[in-house]
């Protein structure tokens, strides 16, 4: 039975997964992703930031995930998530459960972050190694979308802090924790949505498309 699964799901779940994680993962796989044809107001976007031990997703460690949803026109305190892996000393089953819990929390909602290759890269590796899952959510990359939505403010990809400075949200001395970063991203994202609607990008599907297009265009031209 296990062997069949492994065959079906591209490498499949590592055999060490506990029963409850396996059951949750199965349920998650068979669950439907929310439709992306809804207007932004009705779409549950998940703003995500991570903490890592370095910048290389292939070598460095994922230490924490901070996420918060934006829907119905606001960042919702009742729909936030924070996991800190650093305290677990790599205790396998607990990490698996926490990663699985994040999947349940996200519920296949479109994800918003700054620099998908970085954030997405770490998440992908973690899910591959721990749960045997190819993690491919619908990404909205703020790093590429900001300059295309706010051409008047800056027309190149630049560090997040520079955008925060432009909108008067910087000023915080020292390092921000991942949740503070997520909340700042959430604010920027709400501003971005207003611009997007002004450009007729009024559904999640269109926004995801625009994100792909802008990163492709800017990367290749």
């Amino acid at each position: 039975m296990l062997g069949l699964k492994k065959f079906l799901f591209r490498g499949g779940a590592p055999s060490g997964l506990s029963e409850d994680v396996k059951a949750s993962l199965d349920a998650w796989r068979s669950s439907h992703a929310p439709a992306l044809e809804e207007l932004h107001f009705h779409t549950r976007y998940l703003v995500v930031d991570i903490v890592s031990s370095g910048l290389d997703p292939e070598k460095d460690q994922l230490l924490a995930i901070a996420a918060s949803s934006v829907w119905q026109g606001a960042i919702q305190p009742d729909d936030t998530f924070y996991v800190d892996f650093s305290t677990l000393d790599g205790e396998g089953a607990a990490v698996d459960r926490q990663l699985m819990a994040f999947l349940l929390f996200a519920a296949k909602a479109p994800m918003v972050t700054y620099h998908v290759p970085y954030v997405g890269g770490f998440l992908q590796r973690a899910y591959k190694e721990r749960l045997g899952l190819d993690f491919q959510p619908q990404w909205v990359d703020m790093a590429w979308l900001m300059p295309s939505m706010f051409e008047d403010k800056g027309h190149t990809v630049m560090p997040l802090d520079q955008w925060l400075e432009i909108f008067g949200m910087g000023g915080g001395e020292g390092r921000r924790d991942a949740m503070a970063n997520t909340l700042l991203l959430g604010r920027l994202f709400q501003m971005l949505l207003v611009r997007a609607v002004g450009k007729q990008i009024d559904t999640a599907a269109r926004l995801v498309d625009e994100s792909r297009a802008s990163s492709f265009l800017r990367r290749t031209h």
Binding site: S68, P77, T80
Partner: peptide, 13 residues
Amino acid sequence: VEMTLREKGRSRM
């Protein structure tokens, strides 16, 4: 675990 981590998120926010 999900409930616990949601709780952590809420308290961080």
